[in-house]
Amino acid sequence: MAILVLAEHDNASLKLDTAKVVACASAIGGDIDILVAGHECGAVVEAAQKLSGVRQVLVADNGAYTHSLAENIAELIVNLASDYEHILAAASSHGKDAFPRVSALLDVAQLSEVVEVVSSDTFVRPVYAGSALATVQSLDDKKVMTVRTSAFDAVGADGAAAAVAIDKVFDSLSQFVSQTLTESERPELGAASVVVSGGRGMGSGENFSILEQLADKLGGALGASRAAVDAGFVPNDLQVGQTGKIVAPDLYIAVGISGAIQHLAGMKDSKVIVAINKDPEAPIFQIADYGLEADLFEVVPQLIESV
Rank of each mutant, 00 (worst) to 15 (best):
3 I>F: 01
6 L>I: 02
6 L>H: 04
6 L>M: 11
8 E>M: 08
10 D>E: 10
13 S>E: 11
16 L>K: 15
19 A>V: 08
19 A>C: 11
19 A>E: 11
23 A>S: 15
29 G>M: 08
33 D>L: 10
34 I>A: 12
36 V>P: 05
41 C>N: 15
43 A>Y: 01
46 E>I: 00
51 L>S: 06
51 L>Y: 04
52 S>K: 14
53 G>F: 07
55 R>W: 01
60 A>I: 05
60 A>Y: 06
62 N>P: 01
64 A>T: 07
64 A>L: 09
66 T>C: 01
67 H>A: 08
69 L>H: 01
72 N>K: 13
73 I>M: 12
74 A>Q: 08
79 N>P: 00
80 L>M: 10
83 D>Q: 14
83 D>L: 04
85 E>A: 11
87 I>A: 12
87 I>H: 09
87 I>V: 10
91 A>L: 11
93 S>C: 04
93 S>P: 01
97 D>K: 08
101 R>V: 03
103 S>H: 08
106 L>M: 11
107 D>N: 15
108 V>D: 03
110 Q>L: 09
111 L>P: 02
112 S>C: 07
113 E>F: 00
113 E>D: 15
115 V>P: 00
125 R>T: 09
125 R>V: 02
130 G>R: 09
135 T>D: 05
137 Q>N: 13
138 S>F: 01
141 D>P: 00
144 V>M: 13
144 V>C: 13
151 A>I: 03
152 F>H: 09
155 V>Y: 03
158 D>Y: 04
159 G>S: 11
165 A>M: 12
165 A>G: 05
167 D>K: 15
167 D>H: 12
169 V>H: 04
169 V>Y: 02
171 D>E: 15
172 S>E: 05
174 S>Y: 07
177 V>S: 14
179 Q>S: 14
181 L>G: 01
183 E>W: 03
185 E>T: 12
185 E>D: 15
185 E>L: 13
187 P>V: 00
188 E>W: 00
189 L>C: 06
193 S>W: 00
193 S>Y: 01
201 G>W: 00
201 G>E: 07
202 M>F: 01
202 M>H: 05
206 E>G: 00
208 F>K: 05
210 I>Q: 12
211 L>Q: 05
214 L>Y: 06
216 D>N: 13
217 K>F: 02
219 G>Q: 07
220 G>W: 04
224 A>R: 05
225 S>C: 08
225 S>V: 06
235 P>L: 11
239 Q>Y: 04
240 V>I: 15
241 G>F: 02
243 T>F: 02
244 G>K: 10
244 G>D: 08
246 I>E: 12
248 A>T: 05
251 L>Q: 08
256 G>Y: 03
257 I>T: 12
258 S>K: 08
259 G>M: 10
260 A>T: 05
267 M>Q: 03
269 D>Y: 04
270 S>M: 10
272 V>M: 14
272 V>S: 13
277 N>H: 09
281 E>D: 14
283 P>Q: 12
285 F>I: 09
287 I>M: 13
290 Y>I: 14
294 A>P: 00
295 D>R: 08
296 L>T: 04
298 E>S: 11
299 V>G: 01
